[in-house]
Structures are given as structure tokens and as C-alpha cells.
């Protein structure tokens, strides 16, 4: 009984009729596209739909937009060139010249995240990057790839990453433990940062949206809140894609040049 009231559920609203209904997390529910309840590993869901939309957007903007190969670029072509130059210089500046070999993979990550983030901002859309099931594999992919690259390139010398040769000898084992922990925390923070930011933005907008329906006096304030949060989310959508990519570059740099 009491759990029903405070469980933020639909049943609770019947009893506490005065209070607003909060379902800020409902927008992230995975649903099969073609009815039914079962979600097998192959079932097309709303996540599939919006990933497909992202792929179509990538094709429209990056493939169709650049099809003329103009010397003086059109608008869409210059967007594609801008994205290319942005990621390319990021990889070159952070990971170094020998990191450019991995540029297509990093570009794939960036394009996927930035398109997913922005498509998730469309009202009633499903933001794929708010799912831990999406960001955790991404972060683990980066983590394992980078670790494997490090060991392949430097062999056992890659462990020098944890042995801070600049520190006094007595401190080095302690620092090694700290470095080791921080190394293994990387995928956690890497994935939760992205999903958490996107989720937080959407959930807060949802909460404000609930307040719009509460009373005529609160509605304008809540509306301003929604607009402000939306602007913030547009910023966050880009910055989080940028941060995810640049952290990937930083980790890649650590793998390519492990010496401290």
C-alpha cells in the first residue's frame, strides 16, 4: 500500500491524486517495434529504429552531402569536412602522428555518438546513448582495444605506464596501485559519463514537463526551464561526444607512448 503511493507508479497516482505523476525514466524503456513483449537479442526495437535513423542521417549528411566532391564546398559538404578535420586534428594533436592509423575507428565512435546524441534530442525520439547497454560496450571496446594495442606495441613494457619513474622510489609501488585502479576505472567513468549526461538531461526535461501540467502559474516557469535545459542538452550532446572521443585519444596515446 505505502509502496504503491511512493513508488512513483501509476497506481500511486490514483491515491495521491493531488500530486503530479513522475515518470522521468519511462522514456528510456526499450519496446519492440512490431508489437509483442518478448525482446530477444534480434528483436527490432525502438533502439534499432533510432540507430537506423542515425545511420540514415550519416548517409545523408556524409555520403550524399559530399557526392559532388566540389572544390568550393556546399553547406553539407563543409559540415562533413569540418567533422573530418575536427576529429583528424584531435587524433593528431592528442595521440600523435602514429595514432592516425586508428583515425577511422575514432571517427566512427565520434560520428555514432554525436548523431545519436542529437537525434535523441528530437522530442519523442529514443536516445540510444542514454543506455548503459550502449555506452558500456563502447567504453569496453575502447578499453580492450587500447590495452591490446599497448601490449602488442610494447610487450611487457606497457606496464611502465603504471610505474611512475618520475616519483621517488619509495612512492612508486603506492602510485602503481593508484594508477592501476585508475586504469581500470577508466571504462566505468568513460561509459557512465556519456550515458549519465544524456540521461540526466532527458530526465530533467521530463520533470519540468510534468510541472507544466501542474498549474497555470508554474507552467511558464517550467516552460522556461525546459527551454533552458534543452539548450544545455544541445551543448552537452556535442561536448559529451567530444569528451568521449578525446578521452579515447588520450587512452590511445597512453597505449602508444606508455612512458611517463
Amino acid at each position: 500500500m505505502a509502496e504503491d503511493i511512493l513508488g512513483a507508479g501509476t497506481e500511486g497516482a490514483d491515491i495521491v491524486s493531488a500530486g503530479p505523476e513522475f515518470h522521468p525514466m519511462e522514456q528510456f524503456t526499450l519496446e519492440p517495434l512490431f508489437g509483442g513483449h518478448a525482446i530477444n537479442w534480434y528483436t527490432p526495437t525502438n533502439l534499432t529504429l533510432w540507430m537506423g535513423v542515425a545511420i540514415v542521417a550519416v548517409i545523408l549528411l556524409l555520403v550524399v552531402g559530399t557526392r559532388r566532391r566540389a572544390i568550393v564546398p556546399s553547406r553539407t559538404q563543409s559540415v562533413a569536412e569540418l567533422a573530418y578535420g575536427f576529429v583528424y586534428s584531435m587524433v593528431e594533436d592528442v595521440a600523435g602522428k602514429d595514432g592516425l592509423k586508428y583515425f577511422p575507428y575514432i571517427m566512427t565512435l565520434f560520428i555514432f555518438i554525436v548523431f545519436s546524441n542529437f537525434l535523441g534530442l528530437i522530442p519523442l525520439s529514443y536516445s540510444t546513448t542514454s543506455q548503459f547497454a550502449v555506452t558500456v560496450p563502447l567504453a569496453l571496446l575502447v578499453f580492450f582495444t587500447v590495452t591490446i594495442i599497448g601490449f602488442v606495441k610494447h610487450g611487457i613494457g606497457f606496464l611502465g605506464l603504471f610505474w611512475v619513474s618520475a616519483a621517488p622510489l619509495a612512492l612508486r609501488p603506492i602510485l602503481a596501485v593508484i594508477e592501476l585502479i585508475s586504469y581500470f576505472v577508466r571504462p566505468v567513468s568513460h561509459s557512465i559519463r556519456l550515458a549519465g549526461n544524456v540521461m540526466a538531461g532527458h530526465a530533467v526535461i521530463e520533470v519540468f514537463a510534468v510541472f507544466v501540467g501542474v498549474s497555470v502559474f508554474i507552467a511558464p516557469l517550467a516552460f522556461i526551464g525546459i527551454v533552458g535545459m534543452f539548450a544545455m542538452d544541445v551543448l552537452v550532446a556535442f561536448i559529451q561526444a567530444y569528451v568521449f572521443t578525446i578521452l579515447t585519444c588520450v587512452y590511445l596515446k597512453d597505449a602508444l607512448h606508455p612512458a611517463h
Binding site: L47, A54, V58, P104
Partner: peptide
Amino acid sequence: PNQIFWLAVSLVIIYFILSRVVL
């Protein structure tokens, strides 16, 4: 499993679009 499967599919598709055509 469902989400990871579709994520992998989309990533592979985007990777091939980018590396074969766009880049």
C-alpha cells in the same frame, strides 16, 4: 543482448560507410 547486438550492427555499418566512402 538485444541492445548490444544492434549497437554492434550499427557500429559496423557506420564504420564501413565511413572507411569505404566518406573518409
